[in-house]
Each structure stands twice: as C-alpha cells, then as structure tokens.
Amino acid sequence: MRFAHIVLAALILAGCQTTADSPTGDLLTPEQIKTEWSGRPLTATSMNSGNSFSVTFKADGTSALSNAAGFQDTGTWRLSEAGYCTVWRTIRNGAEECFTVRKSGSGYWIYKLNGSLDTKAILS
C-alpha cells in the first residue's frame, strides 16, 4: 500500500514538473489568433507524441494538416470564447476540441482547456 502512495506521489510531481516547465507568455485573444494564424501555415509538434506536422487554419473556417510521413487530414476551426476549437475528420474521430494559446517570442504554446500543454508551434 505504501508503495502505491509513493508511485502516486511521483506521478503527481511529474505532472506538476511538466506544467511548471511549460512556457507561459501572453495569452492570445481569439481575435489575435485569427489575425496571426489565418491562412498562414504553422509548423507544430505534439507534446504527447513528439510528432511534427504542418497545419493551416483558413479564413473560411476550414483547416488542413499533414506530416512528413504522408498523413493528411482536413477539418474545420472556429474561434471560441477563450481561444479556438478544431474538428478534424480523422483525428479524435471528428470530435471538437478547444484550446487556448500563449505566445512566447516567436513560438506559440497551445493548451487544452484542462491546462495541459498540447502543442508547440511556429509560423512556417
């Protein structure tokens, strides 16, 4: 039982360390996201898988994603109250997911609504 508590504490601390090491930067408004990203390709890296990909959010609300391995997906995006939301045809089985964005220098740090760092990106 004691071992389980130690493992649980280590996992909690590891999660806190990841959050503490995450860049903070300025939180972008939805309008700033639209102005800075609309029609401009982003090169992004998933914090979960480490995979890199290119994504473009178009002014008409459509989006396109591809990676070096040949994977491609299309979807839609929209501004939300706190940031933006995406729906990809293949990724997450078409379920909508929303994010907030912080800008730090020339980079963007994309967070899930639960506060976990999802993706880091730069304009291509």
Rank of each mutant, 00 (worst) to 15 (best):
T35P: 01
E36F: 08
E36K: 06
E36Y: 10
E36M: 15
W37T: 00
S38G: 08
S38A: 09
G39Q: 06
R40Q: 11
R40Y: 13
P41D: 07
P41M: 14
P41L: 12
L42S: 06
T43Y: 04
A44L: 09
A44D: 01
S46R: 01
S46W: 00
S46Q: 01
M47F: 04
M47N: 10
M47A: 05
S49M: 09
G50K: 07
G50W: 07
G50T: 15
G50V: 03
G50S: 10
S52W: 05
S52G: 07
F53I: 02
F53M: 10
F53R: 00
V55L: 13
T56R: 01
T56N: 03
F57C: 00
K58D: 14
K58H: 15
A59I: 12
A59G: 11
A59E: 15
D60P: 10
D60W: 09
G61K: 14
G61I: 14
L65Y: 07
L65Q: 01
S66R: 06
S66A: 04
N67V: 02
A68H: 15
A68T: 15
A69S: 14
A69H: 12
A69N: 10
G70F: 07
G70A: 13
G70K: 04
F71Q: 05
Q72R: 13
D73H: 08
D73T: 05
D73Y: 02
T74F: 03
G75D: 09
G75Y: 00
L79F: 06
L79E: 14
L79T: 14
S80W: 03
S80L: 06
S80C: 06
E81P: 02
E81W: 00
A82M: 11
A82L: 10
A82N: 10
A82D: 11
G83C: 05
T86E: 15
T86S: 08
T86M: 10
T86K: 09
W88K: 00
W88V: 02
W88G: 00
T90Y: 12
T90C: 07
I91H: 15
I91M: 13
I91F: 13
R92N: 15
R92K: 11
R92D: 14
R92S: 15
G94N: 06
E96A: 11
E97P: 02
E97K: 13
C98L: 09
C98H: 06
C98P: 03
T100R: 05
T100H: 05
V101A: 04
V101I: 15
R102L: 03
S104L: 13
G105Y: 07
S106N: 12
S106E: 13
S106P: 09
S106D: 15
Y108W: 07
Y108G: 00
Y108R: 02
Y108K: 03
Y108H: 06
W109F: 14
W109G: 00
I110G: 00
I110W: 01
I110Y: 01
I110V: 15
Y111F: 13
Y111T: 05
K112Q: 10
K112V: 11
K112H: 08
K112L: 13
L113R: 08
L113T: 07
L113A: 04
L113W: 13
G115M: 11
G115F: 10
S116D: 10
S116T: 12
